[in-house]
């Protein structure tokens, strides 16, 4: 097995994820791009688990599991935020979220 193949795949996936996060305007698509990045990280962890002999066996796989759990939590909260945003503004474009106005009661 040549580990360079999954590694390069993971690197390219991560780059595509970054590109997607920066390029996309729709919040749901941004979340998808984030999923790509997380998967790239997972792929690196799994590949490293097979190629590097760690002190604790299968540390990489355990970490990958943890990351998957975190991703699930993240997607849950993230989608809740996106839906809330849509309810408030009828729009989910990230570059149209007004940040300059201050919420009430904070002055």
């Amino acid at each position: 097995m040549r580990p360079v193949i999954p590694y390069v795949t993971a690197a390219l996936l991560f780059g595509l994820g970054v590109y997607g996060v920066l390029r996309r305007r729709n919040a749901v698509l941004v979340l998808m791009a984030v999923e790509l990045m997380l998967n790239a990280v997972n792929l690196i962890l799994i590949t490293a688990d097979t190629t590097v002999q760690a002190v604790l066996p299968h540390g990489g796989q355990v970490f990958a599991l943890f990351v998957i759990v975190l991703a699930a939590a993240e997607i849950g909260v993230g989608l809740a935020i996106v839906l809330q945003l849509y309810r408030m503004r009828a729009d989910v474009a990230v570059d149209r979220i007004p940040l300059s106005e201050q919420p009430e009661g904070q002055r």
């Binding site: 590694y7 390219l12 991560f14 780059g15 590109y19 997607g20 390029r23």
Partner: peptide, 9 residues
């Protein structure tokens, strides 16, 4: 994105 991906690769 290209920089990150290609750089890591």
């Amino acid at each position: 994105g290209g920089g990150v991906g290609l750089g890591l690769a």
